[in-house]
Amino acid sequence: MNSFQDRERAFEAKFAADEDLQFRITARRNRLVGHWAAQQMGLTPEETEAYAKSVVQADFEEAGDEDVIRKLLGDLVSAGVDIDELGVRTALEGKMAEARRQFIEESN
Rank of each mutant, 00 (worst) to 15 (best):
L43H: 07
A52V: 12
A37P: 07
E49H: 12
Y51Q: 06
F60N: 14
G80Y: 01
A91V: 00
A79K: 04
L73M: 07
D82S: 09
E85D: 05
Y51G: 04
G74D: 07
V56A: 10
G64F: 11
A63K: 15
G64D: 08
V81H: 04
L76V: 03
D59C: 14
L73G: 01
L73R: 04
L86T: 13
L73A: 03
L43I: 09
K95F: 00
E47M: 12
I83R: 02
V88F: 01
A38C: 11
I83E: 02
T44F: 15
A58W: 03
E46T: 15
A63H: 11
L43G: 07
T90M: 06
S54V: 08
S54L: 06
V88I: 03
E62F: 03
V77R: 11
D65G: 12
L43D: 07
E66L: 13
T48F: 14
A52R: 10
V68M: 04
K71H: 05
V81R: 02
L92P: 03
Q40I: 09
E62M: 12
E47S: 14
R70Q: 08
V55Q: 06
A37N: 08
L86D: 10
D82C: 03
V88L: 02
T90Q: 09
Q57V: 13
L92R: 00
E62L: 10
L72D: 02
S54N: 14
A37K: 07
M96V: 03
G74T: 06
E49S: 09
A37Q: 08
D59W: 12
E61H: 11
K53D: 14
D82T: 09
M41Q: 08
T48D: 14
L43T: 11
G42V: 12
E93D: 06
I83K: 01
